[in-house]
Amino acid sequence: MNARTLRALAPLIAVALALIVPLAVSDRFLLKVFTFCGINALVVVGLALLFGYAGQVSLGHAAFMGLGAYTSAYCTVELGWPWLLGFVAAGVVAALGGLILAIPSLRLKGYYLAMATLGFGLLMSLAFIQAEPITGGVDGFSGIPFPSIGPVEFRSASSLYWLVWGAVGIAVLVAHNITSLRPGRAMRALHGSELGAQACGVDIVGVKVRTFVVSALMAGLAGALYAGVVGFISPSLFTLTASITFIAMTIVGGTSSLAGPILAAVALTLVQYSDALIPGLPRETAQTIQSYQEDIYGLAIVLIVIFAPRGLAGLWKRRSAGNEAS
């Protein structure tokens, strides 16, 4: 099999593998871990558009996830809305947040944009604590109903898994359509050279704003899914650490790629749940891995930036390019 057919088949194989997981995995906790992988993957698909394609860094993406999670929780529990409506509202509110964060991106670049988005993230994580009447403060928000679409309720571990990965699938399809057509080239052009992009008639303001909005929307929907899957959310989920984790996944995954970041999101999420993944793993070892989790992420970023600046996707592209040449 040559590299070209392999590359064409890879998405199909990935989809097939993702679909059969619940049939092969009987452990409910393990299935939940894979569901969390999907939720993180959804955030990372959006971040890959923003950072990997358009080159705009965000160190505040957990805030969008939080916005989505709290919106969905509030709409379903306090307002009694159907889950699907709350899910849509979560997307809308997060997208509005993305619109707000897009404004500094029009003036700031690189480290300065990183700082502005970091500030936004910190501000929002404080807001989640302070807005007690809505968010429940530090105690969090509990009793969030399971996701449901009309009469269909997603209660079982496998149905939640399919719901989440179904959302990931749609997000990937949308993201792939964006990146493979005109807007994707505009985003990559922006990343490469803003002057060059302007000279080509690219509306750089429009592209930045739209990318921020789409990216925030995906994070918001991921947040709403998380709230529905777990039934409980608290401010400690949507902190700077979570934002850094997402950007780590995106960097490790690589630029101008969707598959790379998704793979990295799954792999780095699994690090947190090594005890569920490896059956015979002693408790202490699992705890050690968990307590060094952030160091593992940090190390992964450092290694990737030094040895493979274009991430996993870059390694794969180089390998398949080499195969085609030989």
């Binding site: 005109r182 080239r185 505009a186 990559r188 052009a189 990343h191 490469g192 050279s193 002057l195 060059g196 992009a197 000279a199 080509c200 008639g201 690219v202 630029t255 101008s256 274009r310």
Partner: peptide, 20 residues
């Protein structure tokens, strides 16, 4: 001011954006 990570062909395709 080329887009370094894009191929020559993709670079030229961005030029078409001006009239799309």
């Amino acid at each position: 001011q080329l887009f370094e990570e894009m191929t020559a062909g993709e670079n030229v395709m961005v030029g078409s954006q001006a009239r799309q």
